[in-house]
Amino acid sequence: MKNIINPVSIHLIAQFLLLFLLFTANLFIGSVDLPFEEVWRVLSGRVTNDGSPAIHIVMQYRLPQTITAVIAGSSLAVAGLLMQTLFRNPLADPSILGISSGASLGVAVLLLVSGSLIGSNSVADGWVSQMGLIFAAFIGATAVLGLISWLGKILSNIVSLLIAGIMIAYVAGALVGIAKYFSQKEDLQAFVLWGLGSFSNVGLSQLPYFAFGSITGILMALLMIKPLNLLLLGEGYAANLGINVKRVQMFVLVIAGFLTAIVTAYAGPVAFIGLAVPHLARNIFRTSNHGLLIPAVILTGSSLALFCNLIARLPGFDTSLPVNAVTSLIGAPIVIWVIVRRKHLFTNE
């Protein structure tokens, strides 16, 4: 604390600046070319007439999308960090326990199964709203989370739970496959679109709910800093240092699962942010202390999501690219880079 100019504060300040920069860029840059002054006038509240295309684009699309990216990126990054600590496994990510597969299944049931059952195209006939999709995904995800939590009480160790979670993901995937096979073309297309992920599903009216849920989850994670650090020592050492390991593990699981559920409900499946960001943050801050890592992944996760969102709708393209594809394209090389760097730095063999 005595010295403000230490590597940690420099990195934190740099991360803040980067986040601010990307946030601004997301508001000013997009598929539609709007003049800089025009966007600025909208944001500073000097344009109020609803007829202007700028106000429509900025307030209805860019602003909610940018905020959604920040919330989704930080939530997924925190969820990924918790999962990696919980399973003491660098490959764990928010989707590892089948929670996002549960969301897919929920959406599949709504779009594909119910459509076939009542013999109507769910999307074309317009009886499925964005709200319905969010609801279905959230119910599917929390159902899996409930199942996992119940199994966690029965199974004696966390590795068995990990295997059970991966199996649940397979079962959900298989059920989705069956639903797809029997569904109608238009419904299937809607389902595939949902699966590509998007930061533009959340309108300004829905944003407060999304933000509230996500902030609640992140605050809960921040309350777990001490037990999370102890989990890094291994279960035996953690128990000996006075925590109830099983209870802590269940708390961590529910927090990470809830964050994953809410993001998948609002933005669809978004891959690799939850896996890559904790690695990135650990490498930047060179620490495993959750007191620093949680704030760090919040910043890095938001920035990475904003960066991906920017790439997805660069000017010059007629349409925007699917977010899930962009996060994978950017996230996977980051994970590889981290591993290569690690080997270079640390193995003497």
Binding site: N229, L232, G236, Y237
Partner: peptide, 29 residues
């Protein structure tokens, strides 16, 4: 119990950015 008994087990922490100082510091938790 954590104030009465301390343990050194056969397993050890493997997390990548865990420093010696951090591990010893957790003894003070």
């Amino acid at each position: 119990k954590s104030l009465l008994v301390s343990v050194v087990l056969t397993s050890y922490p493997t997390d990548f950015f865990l420093r010696v100082e951090d591990v010893v510091a957790m003894g003070r938790y």
